[in-house]
Design a binder for these strands. Structure first.
Lengths: 333, 333
DNA sequence: ATGAAAGCGCTAACAG
DNA sequence: CTGTTAGCGCTTTCAT
């Protein structure tokens, strides 16, 4: 049925080993050009496809890297996947994107034996992994939610959140509301804590625009509806500090629809830095996650670990950048 | 280093076979409860993780299904991935999402041995696959661009395009422009042909708003800029028939920014049915791809094929649905 | 109720 | 220059 090296060997009347040498292009065993040509021709003709499982079994390496994400859908995730892909593409490894959910059993997530794991924004998942797993496969945890149990490249969201809030306060906003899903609105969350503290320091009162929608759902719509409702009667809010870009876009749509001026009546900020921010009018000020740097450093760390298991823990924490756009600056808004 | 069945067998002082029986939970060999308990306890303690490659090698099945897509990023793709994932999640198979690009060598794409392939919107890729591949692994081609060389579930975009155009003509539009990337603007493309023919039949002149941006790039922005430029001087266009939802959203942003009334001055239609369409004001009329049906039928076909290689060719073509929203209807717009 | 042994397709010493 | 051989970790008859 499927063509194996044996079949080729029989056809060309050489040994399996010879076929293996030729097909894996090694030159440490010297094989006559004629034999090589014959073997390659036979492989081509017979439609030989190497059985990677067999190769992996013996080599102990699969050449596969697994990227773990929560979801594929929101632009923030899909853009990160996209970025990681571009980085790995240049290497000799292949990328497999897998999703971890609350229900995913930690052992099942990396169902397939991979040489290394890049875990994006899932500290909790990495923290729960059994020791046996952490010891047997190199893992790099990266993103805003990173585990210090393994190599990691983090993003300090608290710094970013404070920068946004100080910016809003700096342009004279006094009634800054936090637009956030209920599930992300609690002490311990970096953005929540930064919000509470910054406002307390400035002497302002915290305000919330909440909605009840799960993190992996389509939050843009939920945010839009929450903002539509809240602003349909006088809200007294002059700025919306949004948990994510998705929410900021939803808010933007709602405010425009209600005829609320941005940033005249309400300033608006996002968080992550997806492309859509620049595509609305006015474009939205936001903290930009360092996508490329995250992906590149994570991959560098993983590569080093792949080469040397005994390296000391590698780690770095990046600071996201505040990108000021029309939604918070009258000049261009 | 890594714990194998042999290690467990030695520890518990039974044979490798016994361990295998216990761990794969088979009851055809009867093993004493005591032994079973010991084996399981040892496996747990020693952090045993089955080597799936070895299992796959012997069983000839990997339990992996590969989903082939062009890209992860635009919402259309990520939503399809999301949908397929939800469908496969319920089965005993695992999903691996891989990307095929123009440069992907057909043999490399499915790098890893999988039991089956779901190829989304990549007829050209499937058509170019060598016979040996098509014969050795079940493939279902699905989406608007499907290959009839294998089992397929298609979407008839021409029908959808005609429905949209007839709708635009029906609401009295006479100068309907086609917003499309240059690379998709040529005879042979279902939407292009439908556009040309529908307009000819109605006695209208074709009009184009083109931009030069590659299919996998961020087209929303490119479309927005193209529309901004075209409409900054009188365009004489009273409807935009957009190649995709991404373009329609970009056009929407541009028109709103220019103060052009939708649909008063210009009616607008999308194509695919992503969530964002409903999140703008006015929401955008579009052809909705039957995501769920596509994913479910494709998976059903693949499953049947997995069970029986010799089944006759399975195929179906779905008709997408026209969803009328505010961007083409004055009542709600 | 358990073990011995063969082998999935491939690689890599080591002989010849 | 090429063939022999011994596994990689696991499943599965077939004996015991």
């Amino acid at each position: 049925m499927t063509v194996t090296m044996n079949d080729i060997a029989k056809r060309v009347r050489v040994s399996r080993a010879t076929v293996s040498y030729v097909l894996s292009g090694r030159d440490d065993a010297s094989i006559s050009e004629a034999t090589k040509r014959q073997v390659r021709a036979a492989a081509q003709e017979m439609g030989y496809r190497p059985n990677r499982m067999a190769r992996a079994l013996i080599k102990g390496r699969t050449q596969m890297i697994e990227l773990l994400v929560h979801d594929f859908h929101p632009a923030f995730y899909s853009y990160m996947i996209h970025t990681v892909r571009k980085v790995i593409e240049q290497s000799e490894y292949h990328l497999n994107v897998a999703q971890v959910t609350a229900e995913t059993s930690p052992l099942e997530a990396s169902y397939w034996p991979v040489d290394g794991v890049l875990a994006f924004d899932c500290a909790a998942f990495v923290d729960k992994l059994p020791d046996s797993v952490v010891e047997s496969v190199p893992i790099v945890s990266f993103g805003a939610s990173y585990s210090t149990r393994v190599d990691h490249v983090g993003v300090d969201l608290a710094v970013g959140a404070r920068a946004v809030l100080r910016h809003l306060i700096g342009i004279g906003r006094r009634r800054i509301a936090y637009l956030v899903a209920e599930c992300d609105c609690q002490a311990g969350n970096a953005r929540y804590d930064a919000y509470i503290n910054c406002l307390k320091d400035a002497g302002f009162e915290p305000l919330f625009v909440n909605f009840n929608e799960d993190r992996t759902a389509y939050q843009r719509k939920a945010a839009r509806e929450a903002v539509l409702e809240r602003f349909s009667s006088p809200s007294g809010i002059d700025a919306l500090f949004c948990f994510s870009d998705e929410l900021a876009i939803g808010a933007h749509m709602a405010l425009r629809q209600l005829g609320v001026s941005i940033p005249g009546d309400v300033a608006l900020t996002g968080f992550d830095g997806i492309d859509d921010l620049e595509c609305v009018d006015p474009p939205i000020t936001a903290i930009a996650q360092p996508y490329e740097a995250l992906a590149e450093i994570a991959w560098t760390f993983l590569n080093k670990r792949l080469e040397n298991k005994d390296l000391p823990r590698q780690s770095t924490v990046l600071t996201p950048e505040l990108v000021i756009r029309g939604s918070t600056s009258l000049a261009s808004g």
